[in-house]
């Protein structure tokens, strides 16, 4: 077993043990952090590995959340169907966005994804009678069941979040060490060279956007199911900025970075919450500080200083 695999399995084991050891407050936080970390890991596939900076991932998160939420609300779908459906909805949206947005690069790609996401947010508001975009809607407790388990129960919720987190973490571990992952890094580092090594750059980027959007969508669907609320605020611009912030903080292009960054920023905000409730202030200040002083993020720093093997 490689050191990286030991590290990732070790993290999962620690999180599992924490389920039974943590006090209720942190127990609840950690469940939320794990789902948000899945969102960040999805973002990291595109930003950290393929090198494409999206400012519109909230649309994928929201597509997953609403794909799940609307089918449950209006058609009484069970979670076992609604969760994959939400993920698929996000994948389909990601495919559409990718085909258009990948005609651009760099700053234009950032603006295009921002605009599409904003349009998505406005669409949710426009269909307010269906989406209840303004105030959001609650997934009834009776619908929040998966494989006979009540997902609103704190322990079940924590373990369900852990399962999703573990699957995505290990999948990212595999992806990064695979041929595909190496090609994505190659495209990030030097697109022209990658093309002239015979790699279809466009197809790989397309795949990266769809994969990244699907994982973000899965996180959105899971978030709605586990915490019971669906709303347009999850499609707003700040919610596109959060995964960027988490990934920058934890270390773009590291498997474990998104989790570290999410946990770090979550508790930083929590801490600042005792001083001010203007929580985006912390996010904004952190973004500036990270671009200035710590481009590589926490785990990027660890990799550069001590652990060159970190994937």
């Amino acid at each position: 077993m490689s050191r990286a695999l030991v590290l990732h399995l070790g993290l999962i084991a620690v999180l599992f043990a924490a389920a039974f050891l943590l006090p209720a407050y942190h127990h609840g936080n950690l469940a939320r952090i794990m789902v948000l970390a899945v969102y960040a890991m999805g973002y990291n596939i595109l930003f950290g590995y393929a090198g494409l900076l999206s400012l519109g991932h909230a649309m994928f998160f929201a597509a997953g959340m609403y794909g799940m939420g609307l089918t449950v609300r209006y058609w009484d779908w069970p979670m076992i169907l609604a969760l994959p459906f939400g993920t698929l909805a996000a994948a389909a949206l990601a495919l559409l966005v990718a085909v258009l947005a990948l005609r651009t690069a760099g700053v234009a790609f950032m603006i295009v994804t921002l605009m599409f996401s904003q349009a998505g947010f406005l669409v949710i508001l426009y269909f307010n009678p269906i989406t209840r975009g303004d105030e959001g809607f609650v997934i009834p407790q009776a619908a929040r069941r998966l494989a006979g388990l009540d997902l609103s129960d704190p322990m079940n919720r924590y373990l369900a979040a852990l399962v999703l987190f573990s699957v995505v973490l290990l999948a990212c571990h595999r992806l990064v060490l695979s041929r595909l992952g190496r090609v994505l890094v190659a495209i990030r580092e030097n697109e022209e060279r990658a093309r002239l090594l015979g790699y279809d750059v466009w197809a790989h980027k397309l795949g990266a956007v769809v994969l990244s959007g699907s994982v973000a969508g899965a996180a959105g669907a899971a978030y709605g199911a586990l915490f019971g609320s669906v709303g347009a605020s999850f499609a707003e611009v700040p919610f596109s900025i959060l995964p960027l912030l988490y990934v920058l903080a934890g270390g773009a292009g590291t498997v474990i970075g998104p989790f570290v960054g999410t946990a770090f920023m979550f508790y930083l905000r929590d801490l600042a919450g005792t001083v001010t409730d203007a929580h985006m202030l912390v996010a904004g200040a952190a973004l500036i500080a990270l671009t200035l002083f710590a481009r590589r993020g926490l785990m990027g720093l660890v990799r550069a200083r001590w652990a060159g093997w970190l994937p």
Binding site: M110, P238, L248, A278, A286, T291, R295
Partner: peptide, 28 residues
């Protein structure tokens, strides 16, 4: 800030996003 980023396009966007929230929330 921007000067130290060498006015790199992508990093500048990220930094000005940060600035957006700092100004907005401080005003609030």
């Amino acid at each position: 800030v921007l000067h130290r980023l060498g006015h790199d396009p992508e990093r500048t966007i990220v930094a000005t996003i940060g600035l957006l929230y700092v100004i907005q929330q401080l005003t609030l």
